[in-house]
Design a binder for these strands. Structure first.
Lengths: 227, 227
DNA sequence: CAGACCAACTGGTACAACCAGTTGACATGT
DNA sequence: ACATGTCAACTGGTTGTACCAGTTGGTCTG
């Protein structure tokens, strides 16, 4: 018997996803007003409180502007939305998945390379040891994609931790959360650098040797998406 | 008589800020459970729905894990929080403002330099023109800090738009929103590159000339925080 | 026709009730 | 003594209703 955990989805989450999709897909354009909470409640067939919870989160995401008494208007996500709506962009079809993956990969490369540089400068000896051992964890032969991604993530988390940069830390969290939600099937193949064990060991060594520029250069070469 | 618009703060926003602060300050540690919605409601002296709206947003920020029936537990923000909690980190005192500003500046430099490079490669002729004219808008002489920051922001938005990278676009939005919420007083002085009109004009020219590496190098030199 | 006014919206907050999972104590069986 | 089943007391999830508080646009009045 094959079983999997039941997925429980809160009503407000459904409403939230639906509203986000409505906006990012462009069906409701920036500046345009969305229906009132009461109208949305009857339209979705849920209580107004659920709609409110969802709307508050949409507002937090920077997709709408809510004003008491006035109408709730859609904002231009290109100007106001934060990095955390990256994921929703794919499912809504506003940006092609391939484009989005490429863009994320580019950003990851930029951050990762710079993080490697700062790691070489700032990391403590313990953190350097963690980077080296994380690099050693890369498999010599073939291995399941999901596992490889996990190993790769561990390595880069060690690098980011060593860089002592909070912004990089949080930025990586957002990107990772995005990729996870998109599913591995989109990610596979694009980061084929992951298979290169020797390069990672070499990179870890450069970092451990405090070679800032060398580490940065190799990291960039390693992470940049192939054309 | 000196008057200013009355600031109306929603109850749920206050609760939200309070909860975020409680967590980021470390007063409630990761893994620890927070009081139930009903308890929080009486503690804050507000309705339970307000607490729910706030909690949902805290969850969206990745700071807590909510489970029906079970308790709501605090998560380690270093591992799960997204880039959008950057701001809250200062006010909570979890990370010194100076450190945070430096980290943000480093990330901005990394993204900005790479965006300049991609802008030189991908931008259309119209977008290149926008970059050039935005650079020309830099003042020759002294000007109010707030205005200078606005001009600087316009310039970098033009560059980011030209890079055709959605992730960079959204990342910039998050960083800008963070800096705005922190207030200009923290930002002034750190980005003294802003005053350098000639460098910006030169950078715009490099981008317009499609000089990817040159644009990147200059942008990095321009944006990197001084030690 | 300008300005005061009012009714009909909008979102914001509250109280009360119930449904639906989780947990742990307790009784029961072996 | 220990594994098991049961149940009460939590937890969050959802709903309904009512009212407060701003905004808006029409209408009535001077």
């Amino acid at each position: 018997m094959q079983v999997s955990p039941v997925v429980r989805t809160a009503v407000s989450d459904v409403v939230f996803a639906s509203l986000v999709d409505e906006i990012l897909s462009g069906r409701t354009e920036p500046g345009q007003a969305i229906p009132s909470e009461r109208e949305l409640a009857v339209a979705f067939g849920v209580n107004r409180h659920a709609v409110r919870e969802a709307l508050k989160r949409v507002q937090q995401a920077g997709l709408v502007a809510i004003s008491q008494g006035g109408k709730t208007r859609v904002q231009d996500w290109r100007r106001y939305a934060g990095l955390d709506v990256l994921v929703a962009l794919t499912t809504s079809g506003a940006v092609p998945a391939k484009t989005l993956i490429h863009d994320i990969a580019v950003m990851r490369a930029s951050l990762g390379a710079d993080a490697a540089r700062w790691c070489a400068r700032n990391a403590t000896d313990e953190e350097l040891a963690a980077v080296v051992s994380a690099a050693a964890a890369f498999p010599a032969g073939a291995v399941a994609p999901a596992e490889l991604i996990a190993i790769d993530l561990t390595f880069w988390e060690a690098v980011i931790d060593g860089s002592h940069n909070v912004a990089y830390r949080l930025g990586l969290n957002t990107l990772v959360a995005g990729l996870v939600e998109m599913g591995y099937e989109h990610v596979e193949g694009l980061f084929d650098e992951q298979a290169d064990r020797d390069a990672h060991v070499q990179l870890a060594q450069l970092i451990a040797d405090r070679d800032e520029q060398g580490a940065r250069a190799l990291a960039e070469r390693l992470m940049s998406p192939k054309e």
